[in-house]
């Protein structure tokens, strides 16, 4: 493939949460090794659209630059992924950048992810330290096999790519989405986290919980961290079914 003279970007912009989105094109001279974030940084320094007009710089979020924080998730040529890990070399042009469509746009490519954090709070995606036990004792042992399994789920960075791909997750649904469900799987399997297992399961057995999954299994296809989300959902299907039977017959 011949090296292009420049990169052409088509960016979906929006000035505020309540105004209509519009498309704007930008050009950047070619340089090897660029990724989408470094290109956006160039456009911040040179906020001139392809018509030659000086415009407000494109707003986006980023943080770690190594695909572990989840902040720069956006649609790159229609694919939900981390902008920092999207290398420009090899991307078909024009490079189309859009905010994730399932969340409220704050400005341009910046979105409001608070729904994900509300979901994490709802399912108590944490380990209680103050649980009434003796905290000076050694932490309970976890087998290496279980450590390996849990590690996969601990890589979640709440980027929202799985929600973007999920047909059940949208602005009019109450579904909490795949990522928070996987955190229930993670924290339920921790020896101390298991103290709150029942509460976590009850939190996902109502409306918007595990039952609202349609098993399209797009989440596991697009997850940039290759988290076995559908395995977590299957295991939670088992845990919630057992919990439901316990609630019915063993209370």
């Amino acid at each position: 493939m011949a090296t292009p003279q420049e990169f052409l970007f088509r960016i979906k912009r929006q000035d505020s949460p309540d105004t209509a989105p519009y498309w704007e094109q930008f050009r950047m001279p070619y340089a090897p090794g660029h990724n989408v974030v470094s290109a956006l940084m160039y456009l911040r320094e040179h906020p001139v659209n392809s018509a030659g007009n000086k415009v407000a710089p494109v707003v986006w979020e980023c943080n770690c630059m190594e695909e572990v924080c989840g902040a720069c998730a956006m649609l790159v040529n229609g694919v939900p992924r981390q902008a920092c890990a999207a290398l420009l070399d090899g991307l078909p042009q024009p490079i189309v950048l859009e905010p994730l469509s399932k969340f409220r746009v704050v400005r341009d490519l910046q979105i409001d992810r608070s729904r994900m954090f509300e979901a994490l709070k709802k399912v108590k995606a944490w380990i209680r330290l103050d649980h009434g036990g003796d905290i000076h004792r050694h932490a309970p042992l976890i087998s290496p096999d279980e450590q390996d399994a849990r590690y996969l789920f601990s890589r979640c960075m709440t980027c929202g790519c799985c929600m973007e791909a999920c047909p059940q997750f949208h602005q009019n649904s109450t579904f909490i989405g795949p990522a928070p469900l996987a955190q229930v799987r993670l924290h339920n399997s921790h020896p101390t986290g298991a103290y709150d297992k029942e509460e976590r399961l009850h939190a996902i057995m109502g409306e918007g919980g595990i039952t609202d999954c349609g098993n399209a299994q797009n989440c596991v296809q697009v997850c940039p961290k290759e988290i076995p989300l559908t395995t977590a959902i299957g295991e939670l299907g088992r845990q919630t079914t057992a919990q439901w039977l316990r609630d019915l017959f063993a209370r």
Partner: peptide, 21 residues
């Protein structure tokens, strides 16, 4: 009710599971 909750997106995500959905 279940159907009403979904927004199919097979045009954007062409996976077998999504098609079966």
């Amino acid at each position: 009710v279940v159907w009403w909750q979904g927004r199919s997106n097979t045009r954007r995500f062409r996976y077998g599971g999504n098609l079966r959905y």
